[in-house]
Design a protein around this nucleic acid. Structure first.
Lengths: 260, 260
DNA sequence: AACATATGTTCGCAATGCGAACTTTTCTGA
DNA sequence: TCAGAAAAGTTCGCATTGCGAACATATGTT
């Protein structure tokens, strides 16, 4: 049973019964086969009378069901969760997370999905610095030379990636653009192995970005988030050292919104 | 806000604070954009001080987050739900529901999925009456002449159903078996339009069954449940009048365990 | 049937959560 | 920028709510 933040427990702003009731609900979640009153009392550290009250209240409110001596969760929790998730898009939920990332580094934090040979921006938290590339939700950029594109491509099935590498339109945009298809394949493989990609002035001189993939519960890469910076601000090394851990944490938090 | 069962509210076995806290959580679920304290107090029918306590407790326990004046749910609810669902199979959760159906009619209630040209039994609640067909989890029966097969086939994409109708092994098992491929196609179309299928002595004389499809949140038919009876017990008309509503209710309850 | 175990019930009581009132902060419009 | 309105935060007396111990009943096991 996870403890609440310590400094709130003794406070008059705290409802201990709610906390204990939620803990009982969580214990039920760990026991889909059902639990008896005595088992719950032991596991929750409550008296039988106390555990019984919480179980009966969860049953009365529809969160649990009682069958003989066994209490178990009901699908109401799913209904509530579904209502919540269905009320807004993933990127609405992700926005506060991305906002924290953007604010921490004062740079733009973006999200994109793969569409054909492009990435399409699906969310964008501007930084305070002006980047020359005008970006907004809906903007398309070529996948091959963008950090988000690189990690998205790394999540493609092998045959699809092979087709992409064979067929994609690949042009030199800066002296640093990787235009060799074999070298690009290697860069994508590296992104897959690393779990991130840094694109260093391949799209545009002065522009450097780092991206991580967003995977659903089945492990499929469905989106990417990145931080775009002016290359004068962060070296490649600093990106990996300073930005990557933050971006990874954001990735994990966004992924919590995927259910299956 | 849904009321708890009235006869529990005044009881000493009831924890009102838990109930009110869960109600606050549900209201948050309807407001993914976040809510202020005053909005919550109004909607929950609480004083500001009361609403504030519940919100702060939900935040302290990790179920909600506070950003300035806005409170919103956190993904912890998803984590709990995921833990619960991940701890057992769908058919474990469905078993009590199917057991109620079986007990109501004293007949076997079964669940199956489509596998190739067959249905495979994935769950089975026996009735008290002995049916001559020995069935157990894992049993395969031909899809074309079973009620569950019929509704499962009705959920196939058109091209797959066309292939099935063209290629499937179809044999006469009783004088009532539909063996004409066009007629079978029509029966499957009828199952799709009706949302259920009755198979009347097509598999075996003396055996009649009625099935409904189980669909996931995207509307894809992924399984079926049925009630198998001796044909002497229930006429086709009685099945549709008496069993179908019960089976439909069970379908709805089982479908609540699908998240997306 | 006897016994052990688990659950249900009761009720005195104290602690927990209540809300009203006051204070502080934030927002809005001129 | 300032004044006023609105919203949120804080305090604390108090009553009601939830507590647990003890007893009663039901269920399971040998």
């Amino acid at each position: 049973m996870e403890a609440a933040a310590d400094d709130d427990v003794g406070s008059r702003d705290h409802v201990g019964s709610l906390e204990r009731g939620l803990a009982v609900m969580e214990i039920l979640a760990h026991h889909p086969e059902g639990m008896t009153l005595t088992e719950m009392a032991e596991e929750a550290g409550l008296t039988r009378a106390g555990a019984r009250r919480f179980l009966l209240t969860l049953a009365a409110t529809g969160y649990a069901t009682q069958s003989g001596r066994l209490f178990s969760l009901s699908p109401r929790l799913l209904t509530v969760a579904r209502t919540w998730l269905g009320g807004a898009s993933l990127w609405t939920f992700a926005a506060p997370i991305m906002r924290e990332v953007a604010a921490k580094f004062d740079e733009a934090c973006n999200a994109a999905v793969l569409s054909g040979e492009d990435v399409v921006y699906v969310a964008r938290i501007p930084g305070r610095r002006i980047l020359s590339v005008a970006l907004d939700v809906g903007t398309r950029l070529p996948a091959y030379c963008t950090s988000m594109g690189r990690v998205l491509l790394s999540g493609l099935p092998a045959d699809e990636l092979k087709t992409f590498l064979a067929d994609a339109t690949i042009e030199r945009r800066t002296p640093k653009t990787i235009i060799g298809r074999a070298a690009l394949g290697k860069a994508i493989d590296k992104a897959r192995a690393d779990g991130f990609a840094i694109v260093d002035e391949e799209l545009e001189l002065g522009l450097r970005s780092i991206a991580v993939p967003i995977a659903d519960r089945a492990g499929r890469t469905v989106a990417a988030i990145n931080l775009s910076t002016q290359s004068a601000r962060f070296s490649v090394e600093a990106m990996e050292r300073d930005i990557l851990p933050v971006l990874r944490r954001a990735k994990e938090r966004v992924e919590e919104f995927f259910f299956v």
